[in-house]
Amino acid sequence: MCGIVGLHLRSPELHPHLGELLAGMLCEMQDRGADSAGIAVYGDPTWSPPGHSTVSLVEPDASPEEVAATLSATLGTPVAVLVRDVTYLLSAEADPEVLLAAARSAYPHVLVGGFGVDLAVLKGVGTPTDLAARWGLAGAQGWQGVGHTRMATESAVTPAGAHPYAVGPDQCMVHNGSFSNHATIRRELRAAGVAFDSENDTEVAARFVADRLAAGADVEEALTDVTRTFDGFYTLLVSNRDSFAVVRDAIACKPAVIAETDAWVAMASEYRALAHLPGVENARIWEPEPETVYAWTRETTREAALA
């Protein structure tokens, strides 16, 4: 099961309503699995202030005040800490890799939920309805959001096992399905020096994609490599601060639907998650084809069939 949703807003007039729309989408998918949930929001000025880098820490063993004081002293610049449920959202006028390195050095065993610019990642154990209420998701703003509600099959029900997996700068992945050869790929990535935070199969795919992107591939190339490397049944949504992409496995076993208007692009595991979006009655709506990457950016809209 599991339910995934994503919303990419083309119209700036809708940016103040991102959280409200995303919350409706995510909570509609709750009966596909409600043991844990998570979101990634791009562009909220409170969660990820303009001109600041952000890092999400999940369940750090320290108070917000201690984290802020420790990292501010380390970096020599103020670090703000917002607490949302079990997630601490750090922000500072520093390079995201520098902020991340300082956080990992000070708290080496903490789970990093995500990092980058304009990105806030929140995740935890519980239903998306309860978590969205505690996060105040309906009040969030921005141009893009991704969400996931999980039915655990591959690893424990913990914040570390919740999606999104946001392991590269500004990147995140949500997944419905399972990979049958993830253990082999995990061993190969570990041998290449890649570290893991969980035993979840989705993290393997997220780190595989992040590795390909870091090596210079674009998202279509990275997801093409996923289809050639991973065995199993899956629908994946991969995003960064400027793009939003969807791909399914060779037999398209896991459900997915995409809708597109001049004002937004959205995808979900089921149409009912899209039914409340403004103008959906006039949207182009389709089921994504097997092994076809559908990708959009903030400047252009593209589809690329895999070779």
Rank of each mutant, 00 (worst) to 15 (best):
Met1Gly: 15
Gly3Asp: 08
Ile4Val: 14
Leu7Gly: 10
His8Arg: 05
Ser11Gln: 09
Ser11His: 09
His17Gln: 13
Leu21Val: 01
Ala23His: 12
Ala23Asp: 15
Arg32Leu: 01
Asp35Trp: 01
Ile39Asp: 05
Val41Leu: 00
Val41Gln: 09
Gly43Trp: 02
Trp47His: 08
Ser48Arg: 02
Ser48Asp: 08
Gly51Arg: 02
Gly51Trp: 00
Val58Asp: 07
Ala62His: 13
Ser63Pro: 14
Glu65Thr: 13
Glu65Ala: 07
Ala68Phe: 00
Thr70His: 00
Thr70Gln: 04
Pro78Gly: 03
Ala80Trp: 09
Val81Trp: 06
Leu82Trp: 06
Val83Tyr: 00
Val83Lys: 07
Asp85Asn: 10
Val86Asn: 05
Val86Tyr: 01
Pro96Glu: 09
Pro96Cys: 02
Leu100Ala: 00
Arg104Ser: 03
Leu111Phe: 06
Val117Asn: 09
Gly126Phe: 03
Thr127His: 04
Pro128Tyr: 00
Pro128Trp: 04
Ala132Pro: 14
Arg134Ala: 15
Gly139Ser: 06
Gly139Thr: 11
Gln141Pro: 00
Gly142Phe: 06
Gly145Trp: 02
Val146Ser: 07
Thr149Met: 06
Thr149His: 10
Ala152Asp: 08
Glu154Tyr: 04
Glu154Met: 12
Ser155Cys: 12
Ala156Met: 05
Val157Glu: 02
Ala160Thr: 06
Gly161Glu: 12
Ala162Asp: 15
His163Ala: 13
His163Met: 06
Pro164Asp: 13
Gly168Glu: 13
Pro169Arg: 11
Asp170Ile: 05
Gln171Trp: 01
Met173Gln: 12
Val174Lys: 03
Gly177Cys: 14
Gly177Ile: 03
Ser178Tyr: 09
Phe179Met: 15
Asn181Glu: 11
His182Gln: 09
Arg186Gly: 11
Arg187Thr: 13
Glu188His: 14
Leu189Glu: 00
Ala191Gly: 12
Ala191Thr: 12
Ala195Ile: 03
Asp197Phe: 06
Ser198Cys: 03
Glu199Gln: 11
Thr202Asp: 14
Thr202His: 10
Val204Phe: 07
Val204Ala: 13
Val204Ser: 11
Ala210Pro: 03
Val219Ser: 06
Glu221Ser: 06
Asp225Tyr: 06
Val226Asp: 13
Phe230Thr: 02
Asp231Thr: 02
Asp231Met: 08
Phe233Pro: 01
Tyr234Met: 05
Leu237Asp: 15
Asn240Asp: 15
Asn240Pro: 01
Lys254Ala: 02
Pro255Gln: 08
Pro255Met: 12
Ala256Phe: 04
Ile258Cys: 05
Ala259Phe: 11
Ala263Thr: 15
Ala266Met: 03
Met267Ser: 15
Glu270Leu: 12
Glu270Gly: 12
Arg272Trp: 01
Leu277Tyr: 02
Pro278Thr: 05
Gly279Phe: 04
Ala283Asn: 07
Ile285Gln: 03
Ile285Thr: 14
Pro290Glu: 03
Tyr294Met: 02
Glu299Pro: 01
Glu303Asn: 10
Leu306Ser: 11
Ala307Asn: 14
